[in-house]
Amino acid sequence: MTHHFRKATTSEIPQIWGILQKAIARRKEDGSNQWQDGYPNPDVIENDIDKNAGYVLTEGDSILGYCALLINDEPEYQKIEGKWLTNDDFVVFHRVAISEKHLGKGLAKKLMNLIADFAISNNIYSLKADTNYDNFAMMAIFEKLGYSYCGEVYFRGSPRKAYEKVLPKTN
């Protein structure tokens, strides 16, 4: 089966929320505080989709993963305590979650590679993201995929580790 990466639709909110709820529970089991404050929630997903920012990784009729993709739209990133690698256009991604049934298949990496493809297709060569200090799985993926730690950003009063990856420009 081939994977597709496309915009999510409002009819898919229940399925996406199901994936995120399990990811929220996994963060808690891992002892992480990330996503334990009532955020994200179904309204957040609906808002992503309304803004054309909600994306799904699918295989046939199944949704394997979800993320929100925004271009140059993260005000908190302007207040970084540290320094970004670039100050050009960037794609920021939030709320990366892989379906419980499909864990351990390298899909988070696949999703992040598709995000890079999305950026390049929009002539953008910078990816930015952040994660909690206690989300070791995500930090490991950032390191594996060549992201650089750039400093701290704050969301809802909590410090987060901010990362950036500069993508190669191919002519």
Rank of each mutant, 00 (worst) to 15 (best):
I141E: 06
D43Y: 10
I63A: 05
G157E: 11
E152Q: 13
F118H: 15
L64R: 12
T58V: 00
I63F: 10
G18R: 15
T170E: 12
E143M: 08
D73G: 00
D134T: 13
N171T: 04
T10Q: 15
N52Y: 08
I63H: 11
D117L: 01
R95M: 02
I13V: 15
N132H: 15
G151F: 02
S99I: 01
E164A: 01
M138L: 09
D48L: 06
G31C: 02
D88K: 15
K161N: 07
L127H: 11
E143K: 15
D43P: 00
K165L: 01
H94N: 04
Y66W: 09
Y66G: 07
K144Y: 14
F155V: 05
M138Q: 14
K161I: 01
R160Y: 11
T131I: 00
I45A: 13
K128S: 00
K161C: 04
D30Q: 14
I124E: 07
S32G: 07
I49T: 05
K110W: 03
N72Y: 12
P42A: 09
E59M: 05
K165S: 02
I98M: 12
G106V: 00
I71D: 10
T58G: 00
F93I: 03
V44G: 06
T170F: 05
G82P: 03
I19D: 10
Y147T: 01
W35V: 05
Q36P: 04
V56S: 08
F93G: 06
R160A: 02
W17L: 01
M138T: 12
A25G: 01
V44Y: 09
I45R: 14
N135L: 03
Y147G: 03
Y55S: 03
L127Y: 09
L127D: 08
A68V: 08
D134N: 15
G38V: 04
W84A: 04
A8I: 00
E81A: 11
G146L: 05
G82M: 10
I19K: 14
V91Y: 13
G38H: 11
V153G: 06
P75K: 10
E76K: 08
D50Y: 12
A23M: 02
K109L: 03
V56Q: 09
Y125A: 04
T86F: 11
Y55W: 14
S11L: 06
N33E: 10
R160G: 05
E152K: 15
Y77S: 05
E143V: 04
Y147V: 00
S148W: 03
D89F: 06
K51Y: 09
L111H: 11
F5E: 02
F136Q: 14
P75N: 04
Q36S: 07
W35K: 10
F136I: 12
D50S: 12
G18T: 09
N122H: 15
K28R: 14
Y55Q: 05
D30Y: 10
R27T: 01
I71P: 02
M112Y: 11
E46R: 15
F142N: 10
K22I: 00
K7P: 01
L107K: 11
N122S: 09
V153K: 13
G18Q: 15
M138Y: 09
D30A: 11
G157H: 10
Y66H: 12
G65Q: 07
L70K: 14
L70F: 14
L167Y: 09
D89S: 15
